[in-house]
Design a protein around this nucleic acid. Structure first.
Length: 638
RNA sequence: GCCGCGGUGGCUCAGCUGGUAGAGCGGCUCCUUGGUAAGGAGCAGGUCGAGGGUUCAAAUCCCUCCCGCGGCUCCA
């Protein structure tokens, strides 16, 4: 208890300080940790976020909020949203601001305003820069609902939010220069803190909450400093340079045509990659006791009524009417596998029964969601269905987690898991769900891999583990998923005879690790920026004869490499050597073997290894062995 | 699917206050046979996304559709 006229404050490190009553949170934090004061954006007083200008009238616990904390980051983003709104209103005074929250990455502010143009955005950016320079304070005011209604009388959106504030509670507003916004706060002290804010773009949206009105959303992102913003923008530029749609076109991996939106064509070079990936997966399946099957692409509607797709997935299915009968293109492989299991009596001795299927699947994704290879309407999954007794689930999942480790490590990708648990609407018994979830979580812990739990996000038929990978730029992608299913076996009436002589229903594990060849290869293209590990690269070696007389030697060497299972090309001699070296570099060929008069005489090659400086001279058999070995071991780098 | 924006040779893009298409790269041909990121010259290639309209005249203005891009929603 502080003496009269002072307040006693306790800080996260356990220290206590007495300050004059009425001191601000900012002053208190500065006293506590002067060296870090410039990083404090706001404060937590008794765990409640407040402005640094908040006056301390009684004893309290006090903690800083900095950009490094999620809550601190959100304050900066939120203040940035205010700055955007202020700037946009200076540009277009009749615009009606609606909401401007922080997001997982940055923030946005939605306006009811005429469609924006790039010129508007330039004006907004300029107005923002002026405000930052002017260091305008964010000033908090608490007003009555009545006053708030008067303040925002012209803005129905704000009036709606005011109405949502519980009666009797004061409404807080923030002034930034002449701009007033309804806001819970807290905010950074002034706009000078928003030097590292950048407007990324705008788009029109029609949120359900706006009653069908089209709003203009301005998106941005904020950092404490311009340097941090610059490195973020650099990362974005790098990501853009790696866009798999552009690289795929340049390297002739795949193709889309207007007449088949969302249906990829695999060109010869891309198909090599698909097959290599498939080979990699197939080797694992053989070692792990899977059998491969192929089931029809189309089924009569009744199968999907049994499976539940008609009820739950119909809007995503391609349907075709043939001879007055409706057939559906399969969006998943499960119905086919169920029918195989059901095709004869099954014994527990056959379990686990692991059926893998790499069949083309069709899903009618909304046109606006299609995106290169990462969101398509036809794709192939590294899919399998494992039929097990409940007590076998654990061992199966354990093997899968190990395969995941091996699979993604091969590509130098990192991964994490998301365990989705029982949703409100679920089928089966709660006790069975609890057991399954506990088992899955234990296995995830055991795997020593980062995971998070999404409560209630499981499928209605069973809990699932989603696999998220991060590429070399740290961007997350959803690939595979492991799902326990208690429902489908029942719906299809699957049974096996147990050791007790009774008939039991198996549990099914649906699982895909890479997800789909399409999405995974799209991600791989961006992850590698077009520089693939040699084993999956469409062309592994390009031989450059220096002059015409070495053509024969080059062709002979190419034949040797081909016999060794290496994918090789021989360049012509029409162009200068420097030009051909440049082309090979731009084509990201892992090994460029130069064969000139010297090498022709002594049986060697001068090899440029992608990513390495200079070149290395190999005897030809040595080089064949070197490349073959790197490929066989699936080394990531050449 | 919704909203905004866009679609010009294989690719990237210029032309777009209407007068009927241009560059670089790539391709082909010829010359050059070159030692590690562009040797030189020439040639070919476009019903300007599709259809309709306005106009003496449309790549350019208007309408519809298709596809793409960015968001939203959704997902492997």
């Amino acid at each position: 208890m502080g003496a009269s006229g002072t307040v006693t404050l306790s800080f996260p490190d356990g220290r206590r300080l007495d300050l004059p009553r009425g001191a601000t949170a900012g002053e208190a934090l500065r006293t506590w940790a002067p060296e870090k004061a410039s990083t404090f954006l706001a404060a937590l007083v008794d765990a409640r976020p407040v402005d640094l200008a908040f006056r301390l009238e009684q004893d309290a616990t006090l903690a800083p909020l900095a950009f490094q904390d999620r809550a601190g980051r959100e304050i900066l983003e939120h203040s940035s949203a205010h700055l955007v709104a202020k700037a946009l209103l200076e540009t277009i005074p009749e615009a009606l601001p609606t909401v401007g929250p922080p997001t997982d990455e940055g923030f946005y502010y939605d306006f009811d305003v005429r469609p924006l143009t790039p010129a508007d955005l330039d004006a907004v950016r300029a107005a923002m820069a002026r405000a930052v320079h002017a260091r305008e304070p964010f000033v908090r005011r608490e007003v009555s609902k009545e006053e708030a209604r008067a303040l925002f009388a012209h803005n129905p959106y704000k009036l709606k939010y005011i109405a949502e504030v519980p009666e009797g509670e004061p409404v807080s507003v923030y002034d930034t220069g002449h701009f007033v916004d309804l806001c819970r706060g807290p905010h950074v002290p002034d706009t000078g803190w928003l030097d590292g804010v950048h407007v990324l773009g705008f788009s029109a949206i029609t949120p359900d909450t706006a009653g069908g009105v089209t709003l203009q959303r301005v998106r941005g992102i904020g950092f404490p400093t311009q340097a941090e913003l610059a490195s973020y923008l650099k990362l974005r530029a790098e990501a853009e340079a790696r866009d798999h749609r552009a690289i795929g076109a340049r390297q002739e991996l795949f193709l889309f045509v207007d007449e088949a939106p969302g249906f990829p064509f695999w060109l010869p070079k891309g198909m090599v990659m698909v097959r290599e990936l498939e080979k990699f997966v197939t080797e694992h399946l053989k070692e792990s006791g899977y059998a491969e099957v192929r089931t029809p692409l189309l089924f009569a509607q009744s199968i999907y009524e049994t499976s539940g797709h008609m009820e739950h997935y119909r809007e995503n299915m391609f349907l075709s009417t043939v001879e007055d009968r409706v057939f559906g293109w399969k969006p998943m492989n499960c119905p086919g596998s169920m029918l195989i299991f059901r095709s004869r009596a099954r014994s527990y001795r056959e379990l686990p029964l692991r059926l893998a299927e790499f069949a083309p699947l069709h899903r009618l994704e909304a046109s606006g969601t299609l995106h290169g290879l990462t969101r398509v309407r036809e794709f192939v999954q590294d899919d399998a269905h494992i039929f097990v007794m409940e007590e076998q689930v654990e061992a199966e999942i354990r093997v899968l987690l190990e395969w995941i480790r091996q699979a993604f490590s091969t590509f130098h990708l990192t991964w994490s898991y998301e365990l989705s648990t029982r949703p409100e609407k679920f089928l089966g018994e709660a006790a069975q769900w609890d057991r399954a979830e506990a088992t899955l979580e234990r296995l995830l812990k055991e795997s020593r891999t980062e995971y998070r739990i999404s409560p209630g996000e499981g499928a209605f038929y069973g809990p699932k583990i989603d696999i998220h990978i991060r590429d070399s730029l740290g961007r997350p992608w959803q690939t595979g998923t492991i799902q326990l299913d208690y429902q489908l076996p029942q719906r299809f009436g699957l049974e096996y005879q147990g050791p007790d002589g009774q008939l039991h229903t198996p549990v099914v594990v649906h699982r895909t690790i890479f997800g789909t060849w399409e999405r995974f290869l799209g991600v791989l293209i961006e992850h590698c920026a077009g520089r693939y590990p040699p084993w999956i690269a469409p062309v592994q070696v390009r031989i450059l004869p220096v002059t015409e007389p070495q053509q024969a030697a080059a062709a002979g060497f190419a034949e040797e490499l081909t016999r060794a299972g290496v994918r090789v090309e021989v360049a012509g001699t029409e162009e200068s050597l420097a030009k051909r070296v440049r082309s090979a570099e731009l084509d990201r060929i892992p090994y460029v073997a130069v064969l000139g008069e010297r090498e022709a005489t002594d049986g060697s090659v001068a090899v440029r290894v992608r990513g390495q400086k200079g070149n290395r001279t190999f005897s030809r058999p040595e080089f064949v062995e070197y490349v073959r070995d790197r490929i066989r071991r699936r080394e990531f780098d050449p």
